[in-house]
């Protein structure tokens, strides 16, 4: 893709039209901000597919239909397949200039929907798959997913004498997707909203499958004040527990390479889900971050 030819989107030139309005997401929900902004970038002629998860639950409450463009709920494991079908259907009908987009949670992507996503990328179907990652199965009341990081308290990974919360590390979804040699993949955060919308804008010009993994805070599941949702999603990037990167033309690219990380203990202290962590456990998280970044910096330049 010729990146220089793509016009940047910003607050001034993005459409005024709202496509995700009147939804019933919790106040301060990061996932709903990701959906809202992505749909603004994609415009009128978009088809959204949402598996079970918060964004489906808060968007379609008959007769309150918060999606202001075409949207449909898929079965949990099959969002990418349904999106493939929509793209194929539009093609067969000769309907042009449309975008098919999936908005799936971390559970719906890294665990349950992974096979369908893999198939879509393999066929290189023209669709945009956006995973909004709130690091647990939130809609059913906070259960651990493959993207829940180490040390997170969830209802299936309780924290106490015997366990530090989740004992597994966050699955490396971005690189799993990139390993398919997908045309375009990116990570993003609602804390860097301009970066996110411009990645969606790039994804929409890809003739094939594209994927965006956007970090999206959940005040309800994270135990954070509603007003800090965007700030905390930025802090995750700044302290190195999340990263902004792209994969295109077979190459990884780091969009943000902090000279110095912000403090992990500061980030952790603000969230109920990590409150129980001991100094040793926090050190474990810091060491895992440093190891990951050493590898990223070495391999992605």
């Amino acid at each position: 893709m010729d990146n220089t030819a793509i016009k940047k989107i910003n607050a001034k030139n993005i459409t005024d039209k709202e496509y995700f309005y009147g939804h019933k997401a919790c106040a301060g929900c990061g996932g709903s901000l990701a959906v809202r902004q992505a749909l603004k970038v994609l415009g009128d002629r978009s088809y959204s597919v949402l598996p079970a998860g918060c964004m489906a639950a808060v968007g379609f409450i008959y007769p309150q239909m918060a999606f202001n463009s075409n949207a449909v709920i898929s079965m949990f494991p099959g969002s990418a397949s349904m999106a493939s079908g929509i793209t194929a259907g539009n093609k067969a009908l000769g309907v042009e200039d449309t975008h098919t987009v999936v908005f799936a949670g971390d559970g719906g992507t890294a665990d349950i929907g992974l096979q369908a996503l893999s198939g879509a990328i393999d066929r290189d179907d023209k669709l945009i798959y956006i995973c909004y990652d709130n690091e647990a199965y939130m809609n059913t009341g906070i259960q651990k997913s493959g993207l829940t990081p180490f040390g997170t308290k969830t209802t299936t990974t309780p924290a106490g004498k015997n366990l530090p919360g989740s004992i597994t590390e966050k699955k490396n979804l971005f690189e799993i997707v990139a390993a398919h040699d997908i045309k375009y993949a990116a990570t993003a955060s609602i804390g860097y909203i301009n970066d996110f919308i411009n990645k969606v804008n790039k994804a929409k010009q890809v003739d094939g499958t594209s994927f965006i993994h956007v970090y999206a805070s959940c005040p309800t599941g994270w135990g954070t004040p509603t007003e800090t949702s965007v700030e905390i999603a930025k802090e995750a990037v700044d302290c190195g527990l999340w990263y902004l990167a792209e994969y295109e033309n077979g190459e990884f690219k780091l969009n943000r390479n902090p000279k110095e990380f912000k403090s992990i203990p500061e980030y952790i202290k603000k969230q109920g889900r990590f409150k129980h962590l001991t100094d040793d456990q926090i050190k474990h998280i810091e060491a895992a971050r440093d190891k990951k970044w050493a590898r990223i910096r070495k391999n992605w330049g």
């Binding site: 008959y62 239909m65 999606f67």
Partner: peptide, 8 residues
């Protein structure tokens, strides 16, 4: 059902 249909 019709999209962008708000009653509440």
């Amino acid at each position: 059902f019709q999209g962008g249909h708000l009653v509440d």
